[in-house]
């Protein structure tokens, strides 16, 4: 008499900790926006991989510090801003975590040939602004943040951010003003002049 083989033991389902679930959601919601934030601020697209990896790692390790009141994204941008500063100082190491993403992004070449004259003039104008003016305009104009969220990233009082933004935009207008005709078209033969900081 042969014994019936015993059924395989039931697969033990791994209970996913709440903490992990929360991070997965945070990651899913913010990976692409954070990648965009980083890509817009680095010279080489593959460097953005290290910025994103380091920022997400910080968020995972300090998950309790990540706000749950709807300001997680500006909080992450604030972390990324500090990571980016380290990167600019040459202090950001090439993280093994970012290896695969880096390979993907290394193939990404910004298509500068398709950069129109108007866009070039705007970027020139942005480059002439102070760091704080430029960052405020980029956060609201490119990264899709509201002024109050930009205030969280920059660590400035929410009360003053709209005024600062208004002034920054005025300075950008002035910086690019000479490059445009009255109807908003870029002039052929003029270049934006440096703008004076007037704060």
């Amino acid at each position: 008499m042969t014994s019936t083989p015993s059924p395989p033991p039931p697969v033990e389902l791994r209970a996913v900790p709440d903490r992990e679930l929360r991070f997965r959601e945070l990651f899913d919601d913010n990976f692409r926006p954070l990648l965009g934030y980083a890509l817009r601020r680095v010279a080489n697209p593959d460097d953005a991989a290290d910025i994103v990896a380091e920022t997400m790692l910080v968020a995972w390790r300090r998950l309790d510090d990540v706000p749950v009141d709807g300001t997680a994204r500006p909080y992450l941008y604030g972390v990324a801003r500090r990571v980016l500063a380290n990167h600019r100082r040459g202090e950001l190491r090439r993280d093994k975590l970012a290896e695969k993403l880096r390979l993907h992004l290394a193939e990404l070449t910004p298509d500068v040939t398709s950069l129109s004259e108007t866009s070039a003039a705007i970027r020139d104008g942005l480059a002439r602004l102070s760091d704080s003016d430029r960052e405020l305009i980029m956060l609201t104009g490119w990264d899709g943040l509201e002024p109050r969220e930009a205030a969280v990233v920059l660590g400035i009082p929410g009360r003053t951010v709209r005024t600062r933004l208004h002034r920054a935009r005025t300075r950008l207008r002035k910086a690019v003003g000479d490059a445009f005709t009255d109807d908003g078209h870029v002039r052929d033969d003029q270049h934006a002049r440096p703008v004076q900081e007037e704060r």
């Binding site: 692409r32 990648l35 965009g36 993907h104 992004l105």
Partner: peptide, 29 residues
């Protein structure tokens, strides 16, 4: 003008072929 000058607009970033790298990064973290 600002939106046009954005080197990586939202849609561009969304369409970057990085899904595999994205999930690997998540699991590695």
């Amino acid at each position: 003008l600002l939106a046009r000058a954005n080197p990586y607009g939202d849609k561009t970033v969304r369409q970057l072929p990085a899904a595999g790298a994205e999930s690997k990064l998540l699991e590695d973290i």
